[in-house]
Amino acid sequence: MSTSADVDRLETGQHRAGAGYARYVGWRLAQGVVVVFGAVVLSFLITNLSGNPGQVIGGSFLSPQQRQQIIDQLGYNRPVLQRLASYLAGAAHGDFGTSYQTGEPALRVVLTAFPNTALLIACAITLAVVAAVPVAVLSVLHRGSAGDRASRVVMMLAGALPDFWIAIVLVRLLSVNLPWLPAIGFTSPQSLILPTVALALPLIPAFVRLLRGALLDVVGQEFVTVLRSKGFRDRFIVAHHALRNALVPFVTLLAMQIGWLLGGTIIVEVIFAWPGIGSVINNAVQARDVAVIQAAVVVVACGYVLLNLAADVAVTLIDPRVRSGIRP
């Protein structure tokens, strides 16, 4: 018989839960702010590592007079701490300095390119997840079989190939033989295909590995035995119940590793001349445009904070325990 004690426990539990969730969200936002601040400082450190950026800027393209002019203009002749202070102050307003090449504010240069990169990344992740899910599910259903072992070796081999190598080979194989697939720039919606595939292919083995691990963990839990006893087929259990449960740790782990996994974005953008942040960074790096490099580092860091937040939101939507403030 359900006692009033049971009901009481439930009510108070829910009260506490609400507070717990709000605190969790607050904590995540605070972490995000710390990351962004860290990125701002980091960007300053990077560009000042080898001494005054004024010496480095422009590389060998500038004559000494031009260089001196730029140094005066952009204030690189001031002492380090003063530069740091003004940099931080400027960063708070979104002013990261000016690109010496175009004269535009560095932040604007970077932000213009940001949506293209975001689009590319979103498509690549979607493609990789869509491809990884069936592979992981089949791998779990047939685990231990010869076919499964063979497929894992293939995955491992695919994961060992350098992403830039895959990209180049892909360009050669596909765009030369299928001329309607553009390989350079962002001229039409089809332009998205090759870069997306090139970026997604190295992701797939990593996703399969993560998802497979998560699925195996879930499949070992007791409620799966109960589901089997109710008469559900293994195929259905893995593809429906186990998959949904596995998505929670999968998304969480993914969010943690996404920085490492998406490192190849710069290279892919360079190879396909995709007008995104990667290309901007590459150009800025070749031309030693210090302000743009700084702005880019900060923007990318913000992007990853947003991505992590998106992952958290996704977990919230899937897992009711998080909504109650209980961290699984």
């Binding site: 839990q221 007791e222 409620f223 035995t225 109960v226 589901l227 899937i318 897992d319 009711p320 699984p328």
Partner: peptide, 11 residues
Amino acid sequence: LQNPLTGLSPL
């Protein structure tokens, strides 16, 4: 099963 809570899918 032994532990009723783990016999239920959390989602």
